[in-house]
């Protein structure tokens, strides 16, 4: 298992890897919070190397996104791994409409047709 410290912090990009589950929830929430605070406008989470995720991590993502919206930053997720997408689907986090707190098409959970 890789820790967040091993993840690449490059410009506004943070890459997370390994099993992102409840056992690492506190640690992940703290590091993402800190990283997000350091970003000025654009923040990109690279989740290509996620090998497992559970509801706790999906909640963290959602919370981080809500924080970024409040602070006027743009947080987006790039190349989510198959495992992460599966967790999203299984836990019913996928949305056809953005959630009420999101504006425009920034919602993390919105499934775009054809993707």
């Amino acid at each position: 298992m890789q820790s967040v410290e091993n993840g690449l912090k490059q410009n506004s990009r943070l890459a997370l890897a390994g099993e992102l589950t409840i056992s690492r929830a506190s640690e992940l929430a703290a590091s993402i919070g800190q990283w997000l605070a350091e970003q000025e406008t654009v923040a990109v989470l690279d989740l290509a190397a996620v090998t497992a995720a559970d509801v706790s991590f999906l909640q963290i993502l959602c919370a981080a996104h809500r924080s970024s919206l409040r602070e006027g930053k743009s947080l987006s997720v790039v190349s989510p791994s198959r495992e992460l997408l599966r967790a999203m689907k299984t836990a019913g986090f996928e949305r056809r409409q953005p959630c009420t707190q999101c504006t425009g098409d920034t919602c993390l959970w919105q499934v775009k047709e054809g993707l």
């Binding site: 506190s26 509801v55 706790s56 909640q59 963290i60 809500r66 986090f93 009420t100 707190q101």
Partner: peptide
């Protein structure tokens, strides 16, 4: 999943279930 109760990251207890 109903995510309306999930707070912002600063207020989030990462180990609690909000959903």
């Amino acid at each position: 999943a109903q995510v309306e109760n999930i707070p912002r990251l600063q207020e989030l207890d990462p180990e609690a279930c909000y959903t």
